[in-house]
Write a protein that binds this DNA or RNA. Sequence first.
DNA 1: TTCTTGACTTGGACTCCGTCCATCGTAGGA
DNA 2: TCCTACGATGGACGGAGTCCAAGTCAAGAA
Lengths: 136, 136
Amino acid sequence: MSDLLERLRGRGWRMTSQRRVVAEVLDGDHVHLTADEVHARAAARLPEISRATVYNTLGELVVLGEVSEVATDGRAKRYDPNGHTPHQHLVCSGCGSIRDVRPTGNLLAGLPQEERFGFTLSAVEVTYRGLCPDCA
Amino acid sequence: MSDLLERLRGRGWRMTSQRRVVAEVLDGDHVHLTADEVHARAAARLPEISRATVYNTLGELVVLGEVSEVATDGRAKRYDPNGHTPHQHLVCSGCGSIRDVRPTGNLLAGLPQEERFGFTLSAVEVTYRGLCPDCA
DNA sequence: TTCTTGACTTGGACTCCGTCCATCGTAGGA
DNA sequence: TCCTACGATGGACGGAGTCCAAGTCAAGAA
């Protein structure tokens, strides 16, 4: 994610300390923080950062394709920095933990023509549910 | 859905006019109403029905497996009365309309063992996205 | 280096969705 | 018909997210 800052600068982003901190907080694999969690971690480094700025920055990262939104429960959206490698999610029904996973095969192909109702398909989102080793 | 009322009575449900109206509003295929939409339609027949009652009744129907919750966008949950036949959803990225669809094959099988992280899988939810004929 | 400006940040008000709770009403058994 | 426990009511509340007017500052210009 270190080169994320470079990519953003290349896209004409004004580089502010707030945006830098938000991007740093989202660094890593299997990271799926809510906006409030991002805000809390960012505020640990930059106490004055506001919730509105975190929401703004996350929204911009989503538009740029650097981060994707994940809504696995009815609660707050989570933000997944793994935006460049297509993947799906595996969610523990017990503790709610989330792993990034890569199913095999063409997921779009699973929907037969007569079940497409004339739609032009463009994407599939899959959420696998189960119990993690700790909760099983 | 007409026999839904019978099933509910058989489960010991006290049959009130409010519950009857909520169940009737949810009748049909490809019905995916938000709680507020259910409330609005129910209130057209039973003006005094409260939001809390609609939420309570929907929640009970979900627990009974008669209705499933669908969260395709970050907005309000939608309620799908097609609770007895397993299916997935096809969502139009333009207008947000939703169709029930039945993909072929075993969806769980698409996730290889080494991508399961020791989880015990129990369910898969798939959301296909694309443009409907009207929006294309 | 300093200046300038428009993009960015702030924080508080606001909306939307959903839950909670004390009180009232009523379905259905005795 | 009466009783009572289950269900309905509606208003307060809480969490998540958006909006906006005012203030701040990154970065290009001079």
